[in-house]
Design a protein around this nucleic acid. Structure first.
Length: 415
DNA sequence: TCTGGGGTCCTAGGACCC
DNA sequence: TCTGGGGTCCTAGGACCC
């Protein structure tokens, strides 16, 4: 059995912890640039303020109803999240931190009779110690735990979905509210007569796999109580890292874009170093607003390989700016830009045999070059790893055997 | 006029290899 | 006239999540 613990209206709840005066007032938290509503307290939801609503559209309502408005404060939310997770981790035998405000817990070891009571106590503890209200749903699979959490949010805050409860619960849930079913799939499924979670569970998983993907097949199986998703206790290292922003006003000039992209790249480099990682390539992109008229929309991106894996701000900024200059076009009104670092690896990781199993002409050429070097200078003079990003070759690592003293710079330019 | 930011996984198709 | 089979890697794009 899995339990899903989900913080209620997390960002709004965090703000409330530090300001008791707004304990009962409606609250919204805004995105970057204060552009959109990204979190709402229950009172704000009741006023009809939608998730993702452009702030300018609700400004009047917000003023009339005395809604408390906050710019987002991710440092605060991250800190509060860690505190909540600590309390959960102390209680549960195993935990997967799924997002900033959600965690799956392994509750397989609890007696069915005592589980609901235990979870209610846990919920009260988080509320008392940290000040954040949470909802807890329990099910036979992660997807069913999500379903149960839906029910918990509308009831006492804890819902244990037993096998015999599943029929009723799924019949009462729209298919679009199932974890993994987004708006596109919802539309397609509606065309097939699948409107509720119960319909989806009854559908043929193999057919859905053919029609859509293995993800949908897994969702059907999970709804049937067949676990396809395990509890992942260790967070795998991230593979990409992005820093991007929408501009407050439209930008057309290259120097302004350069200033923004340089900032993004160096911020990305900071994050990279924080995580003890390096990047071997990056994508820089810039585009106009998606609300721009059809003919005026412009979007471009460039992948740039780095000469070697790095977390050095200067290297990343230089590469990002080179990409930006290549993609820049005078004319478009740029609304957003960003830098995404790719091919992240632990900074300390050695990759002496990256070529194993890679057999391309370019690799062969490099290997031949290495052979020549090693024949000329002795065995193990040099080893090298490389990877191809787009059309650019990137040297991943070069290291010398300590037994030899030949310096890299002194080697003949066989490459 | 103003419309978020940061991720992951999957698929399809082409290039290339043996 | 017939025209293998199985695999990896890469990219682009779609879809989803919070």
């Amino acid at each position: 059995m899995f339990a899903l613990v989900d913080c209620n209206n997390f960002y709004a709840s965090c703000e409330r912890v530090f300001d008791p005066r707004i304990a009962r007032r409606p609250i919204v938290v805004l995105s970057n640039n204060d552009g959109c509503v990204i979190a709402r307290s229950a009172e704000a939801k009741a006023l009809g303020i939608k998730m993702g609503a452009p702030f300018h559209e609700v400004r009047g309502l917000v003023a009339r109803e005395g809604v408390a408005v906050f710019s987002s404060n991710y440092a605060l939310y991250g800190d509060m999240s860690a505190r909540v997770m600590n309390v959960l981790a102390d209680w549960a035998p195993a935990i997967e931190i799924y997002s900033i405000d959600e965690a799956f817990l392994d509750v397989g070891g609890f007696a069915p009779g005592s589980l609901a009571g235990e979870l209610a106590a846990l919920r009260a503890r988080v509320r008392q110690w940290i000040g954040i209200p949470v909802s807890v749903g329990v099910g036979r699979t992660k997807t069913l735990a999500k379903v149960a959490n839906h029910i918990a949010k509308k009831s006492a805050g804890v819902a244990v979905l037993t096998h015999s409860d599943e029929d009723a619960a799924l019949a009462g849930l729209l298919v679009g509210d199932v974890w993994g079913i987004g708006h596109r799939l919802t539309r397609h499924l509606a065309g097939m007569g699948i409107f509720t979670a119960a319909h989806l569970r009854a559908a043929d998983p193999r057919m859905l796999r053919q029609r859509f993907s293995v993800v949908v097949e897994r969702t059907v199986l999970e709804l049937r109580g067949v676990p396809c998703l395990a509890l992942e206790e260790v967070t795998p290292p991230r593979k990409n890292l992005m820093v991007s922003r929408s501009f407050g006003t439209r930008v057309t000039a290259l120097p302004e874009l350069e200033a923004a992209v340089a900032t993004f790249a160096s911020r990305a480099a900071e994050k990279l170093r924080q995580g003890g990682q390096t990047a071997a390539a990056l994508i820089v992109f810039a585009h106009s607003s998606r609300f721009e008229k059809n003919g005026e929309r412009y979007s471009a991106a460039r992948t740039v390989g780095l000469p070697h894996p790095t977390s050095d701000s200067r290297h990343l900024v230089v590469a990002a700016l080179a990409g930006l200059r290549d993609l820049y076009r005078a004319g478009p009104r740029y609304a957003k830009a960003g830098v995404m670092l790719l091919d992240l690896a632990p900074a300390a990781e050695a990759m002496p045999s990256l070529f194993a199993g890679v057999d391309t002409p370019a690799n062969k050429q490099l290997m031949a070059a290495l052979d020549r070097l090693n024949r000329a200078h002795g065995r193990n003079t040099v080893a090298i790893g490389a990877s191809r990003i787009g059309k650019a070759w990137t040297m991943r690592q070069a290291h010398r055997s300590p037994a030899f003293t030949t310096r890299w710079a002194d080697l003949p330019s066989a490459h």
